[in-house]
Amino acid sequence: MDQLLQAIKDSITIGCLYALIALGYTMVYGILKFINFAHSDVVVIGALSTAVLGERMLHKLAPGATAAWYYGPLLLLLAILICSTVAFTVERLAYRPLRRAPRLNVLITAIGVSLLLQNAGQLKFLFGTEPHPVPMLIDQTATIFTVLGVKFRWLDLAIIGTAIIFMVALDYLVFHTKIGRGMRAVSHDTRIASLMGVPVDRIISFTFITGAALAAAGGFLYALRYQTVTQPADTGWALLGLKAFVAAVVGGIGNIRGAVLGALAIACVENFGAAYLHPGYTDVYVFVILILVLLFRPGGILGKAVVEKV
């Protein structure tokens, strides 16, 4: 029973992290129809800037002490600013010139951008190659309540709460605002959207900025939870990005609500697999699910059967 409860709690927390990252993949795919492989590196930048800026600001903090409450939101805001700037610049310089090029060219460029960000991030004056400890932005052990020996910490609440705020805000943006209407129009048909007077390039930039803001939140929450952030080219990051991508595909790539659903599904598979099968094979469970979804429901949970338009 306690094992079940623990698995549920972990699934939701980790699912929230995956969801924030998966949304960026799915939004860019929805509009430009390509996988932005550099997206996971934006998450890394969010996590590392939280750690590095946090170290700078809080170096006077006594070991083991928790920072004042406002450092968390402040670092989150800074991470969002940095990530959005990076994503905006990447889109502008690397992807926009390829707007009329075959999709494969853009895909290869995305891989190139990803490698560039990883390697540039290792430069000494940026993040370097050492892991960074994250200052205590929230008391890691403070517990709200304990049920059957499973602790519900303020940390869990912070992660779930922040993620939900961002997801609700995104849903509102996309489905209830003018710019969201523009995004959906561009995603359905760029040409017709531009005939409505929708400024397509501006909408694409905005999409990258929004996706990066969510990625920054994901990176920030990751740093909050794991307390140590490894260097930009660490393989763990690639796996994190890949799992979020799998979540987007499982949910139905291009579908915003699907990405959230897919992320929760992936996290459940991982955590229940670890609890009831074997904890050593979590990655295997995730990719088995991907294969099954691709075999039996290639459009994903909320996706429709794909009909290529001619």
Binding site: K178, R181, G182, R184, A185, H188, D189, I192, A193, M196, V198
Partner: peptide
Amino acid sequence: FPQMTVEENLSLG
């Protein structure tokens, strides 16, 4: 835009 309502289509105009 087939997945949007008539109202939303109009406001896109």
